[in-house]
Design a binder for these strands. Structure first.
Lengths: 200, 200
DNA sequence: GTCTATAGAACGATAGAC
DNA sequence: GTCTATCGTTCTATAGAC
């Protein structure tokens, strides 16, 4: 309660909105769209249903607002490291070390993404928005790879865009498997596969 | 109505069960687990709730039965081809050709799978059962690979279990991306990556 | 007549909307 | 906080196979 009267009405409104969206993100990620009630979102944010309906006309709109938020935000990426030009082995090893923690820390983000993917299979407008984001991610990835190989004067083993797609597929797939069945995602799966795919 | 009175009780029961499972598969794929009521499943199959609860103790069990049904019917996939010892390139090429059709034909199953995975992330007993299936699939895959390399007198580029996990991750991830954003899953991504990963 | 798969009403809980 | 809808589940009655 440092400043009790420093927020204008609009600021307070924006703050409430943000709190509701954050709470919704966590709840949706944890329990799924249908598994979450407006009540639960409101309560998690420290408000009541009334606040939710003051900001979003219904549950679907809340969801779409969340999607937009999600899409404009940054995906957790390792791009800088890729471009740094460190050896493939050390790069892959670093990533591997970070993986278990990352799976845990990005669990919400990941399952929210999966939630969106699922929705996108049933709603074409959602699918389109998500697809745009995938294309952008692929292009970013490809650009990083390009830089990396150029800096080292090496040639990629597979055409660069294809390699980027393959890496995205592998990473997403591995994280999906890791959620369900961590016992088969043993030490070294990630780094060995990455090294194998990236090695010139 | 060819034969009105040729079904024994057991036959009728089995037929009902099959009809319920088929209806459930379609409904779940189209609307998601939480988006489908037991009533809807029953009606789609031409029965009522009573029939559903006579065959499955609850909604989760219905879902699990669906999973078992699918997984047991799917096992004979690319396995024989893998073991046949054909060259990696022709093997990968064959699979690639089959891919677009497969993505389309398994679209329903794909979204069901994701639905299941998401569900399993939120329910530990479901997660455990799904994880068992993943382990078995990984082991089967690894055994096929083992046979293949042994037959050709070659060595796998990565420890065989890790390779199997990586392939599963890649395939699942690629099919996921293909659902949302087919434009980045260009021709050759699958076969080139597969060849790269399998090449001794 | 007995048994049981199924129909369908009834119940308690919970949701979204306002 | 209320109102209405709907859900998963349980329970009971019944029709038809044995």
């Amino acid at each position: 309660m440092a400043q009790k009267r420093r927020l204008t009405r609009d600021e307070a409104k924006a703050q409430t909105r943000r709190a509701l969206l954050e709470a919704a993100a966590e709840q949706f990620a944890r329990h799924g769209f249908n598994g979450v009630s407006i009540d639960a979102v409101a309560e998690a944010a420290g408000y009541t249903k009334g606040a939710v309906y003051a900001h979003f006309s219904n549950k679907d709109e809340l969801y779409l607002a969340l999607l937009d938020d999600h899409l404009s935000g940054e995906a957790p990426g390792a791009t800088e490291q890729l471009e740094s030009g460190a050896s493939i082995e050390s790069f892959a090893g670093d990533l591997e070390e970070a993986l278990p923690g990352q799976i845990e820390s990005t669990r919400d983000w990941g399952s929210l993404t999966f939630e969106f993917i699922l929705h996108s299979m049933r709603d074409d407008s959602v699918r389109g928005r998500l697809a745009e984001r995938f294309v952008r991610a692929r292009d970013d990835y490809a650009a990083s790879l390009e830089k990396r190989y150029a800096a080292n004067g090496e040639d990629p083993p597979i055409e660069i865009e294809k390699l980027a797609t393959a890496l995205m597929a592998f990473e997403n797939g591995l994280s999906m498997i890791g959620f369900v069945c961590p016992e088969i995602v043993t030490d070294g799966v990630y780094s060995a596969t990455l090294a194998r795919l990236l090695d010139p």
